[in-house]
Every structure is written in structure tokens, then in C-alpha cells.
């Protein structure tokens, strides 16, 4: 199966993974921060022959990664990426983990130190359904933010506009930005109509 077919097949259930794959060069060296069970890296390895490493804190996820044949380094992202040389990766990925980081500024800076490019994806808090739930007086619970307020790993939720400003203020250039709602690309009023934000970043 060609890589394009592979991506197409997989993209039926993870459009965001397919987009990340499309942003990568074939055979590139990638670091996936908070790689979970290694699903994304496994997809990128099979579709793009990515030379990948995952970083994961959780014991159970670590075991699954090893079962999946993923190179996985057990460490806490909050401690930074001091175990990685500057500019030693083509791309550093933070897939739907940004909102759970305590030290957001530091991790994004570290990603751009270690990688020539960073890919960051996060659930858009400005999505209209989230806003609607807030107007109705409740903290949003949705497919992309599936946690009750009292039991959530998320500590730094933001909107697309917030993150655009963040990049501007931190001298980060947005190479590309894509916004999705349930796998569909959103071009019109993305901060209102988009549920998942995807960014390609590099240092200015």
C-alpha cells in the first residue's frame, strides 16, 4: 500500500494524524511529546517511514509503546527536554497535550530548541459549542474536551486567537495553521467554528 493510500485509510478515523503526516517529510526524524500509547508514531512510521521517538510519563502507556515497537523515553515533559540536543529533530510534535502542560511557555520554547519545526495541536476553547455551554452556565464538555471540570488533566485551555497571540508575543512564526471540526477543515471563522487547532511552528 502506498503511503498516500495508507494516510487515506487511516484518515477516516484520525484526520488530524493524516494532516500531521502530510506536513512531514518522508523518512524525517520526529519526536512525539506525550506520545500516549504510540498510536500517532506508529502511524507515522508505517505511512512516512518516520524515524521516531516518543516521550511518555505514564507506566501503562510506556508498556503499550514497547509492545508497539515504538522507541519511547520515559520522562516528565514538565522537566523540559534537557536530554535532547538543540536542533536534533526535524520536527517535534505535541498532539493534544498543550492544554495539559503546566509550563506552556517553556515546553513550546523547548520544542523549537530541539526541533527545526514544531507541530502543536489542541482543542479550541473558542469553538461555538464550548462557548454555548459556558453561556448556558456550564464548563464545556465535548468530544475534544471530554472531561468534567473537577476531573481533568487540562490546566491551560486556550482559543485559537489566544494561541495566535502567544506565538506573536514569543517570536514564533506560524508556518501553517489548520482548523478542523470532526475531521472537516474549517476556513470561515475558525475560532468560532473550529474544534481542533493544528499549527506548524518555527522560530522567527
Amino acid at each position: 500500500m502506498s503511503s498516500a493510500q495508507n494516510i487515506a485509510k487511516f484518515s477516516q478515523f484520525r484526520q488530524d494524524y493524516a494532516i500531521i503526516a502530510n506536513w512531514l517529510k518522508f523518512g524525517c526524524k520526529a519526536l512525539d511529546l506525550g506520545c500516549g500509547d504510540g498510536e500517532l508514531l506508529r502511524f507515522l512510521q508505517s505511512s512516512m517511514e518516520v524515524r521516531g521517538y516518543g516521550v511518555e510519563k505514564d507506566d501503562g502507556n510506556l508498556l503499550t509503546c514497547m509492545q508497539n515497537g515504538i522507541n519511547v523515553i520515559q520522562m516528565d515533559l514538565e522537566d523540559g527536554l534537557s536530554g535532547f540536543e538543540a536542533q536534533s529533530f526535524d520536527v517535534v510534535i505535541l498532539s493534544q497535550t498543550l492544554q495539559a502542560m503546566h509550563n506552556t511557555e517553556r515546553i513550546v520554547q523547548e520544542m523549537l530548541r530541539v526541533g527545526r519545526e514544531a507541530i502543536v495541536t489542541f482543542p479550541n476553547f473558542g469553538y461555538w459549542r464550548n462557548r454555548f455551554q459556558l453561556i448556558a452556565g456550564r464548563m464545556p464538555v465535548s468530544r475534544d474536551i471530554p472531561y468534567q471540570w473537577y476531573d481533568t488533566p487540562n490546566v491551560h485551555l486556550c482559543t485559537i486567537t489566544d494561541f495566535d497571540k502567544f506565538c506573536e508575543n514569543h517570536n514564533i512564526r506560524v508556518k501553517e495553521r489548520l482548523v478542523l471540526t470532526y475531521g472537516e477543515r474549517i476556513n470561515f471563522m475558525p475560532n468560532l467554528l473550529g474544534s481542533l487547532a493544528m499549527y506548524r511552528l518555527e522560530n522567527k
Binding site: R51, Y53, I73, Q74, G83, F84, S88
Partner: peptide, 17 residues
């Protein structure tokens, strides 16, 4: 682990509690 990463070796690292 750092030295192995520098050499792009396949490496996994577990820090067991």
C-alpha cells in the same frame, strides 16, 4: 540515553518507580 539519541540509535528508556 542522551548519547544514544545523539547517535540516532533505537532506544527506549524506562524509569521504574
Amino acid at each position: 540515553v542522551k548519547a544514544l539519541l545523539d547517535n540516532e540509535r533505537a532506544v527506549s528508556y524506562a524509569e521504574v518507580t
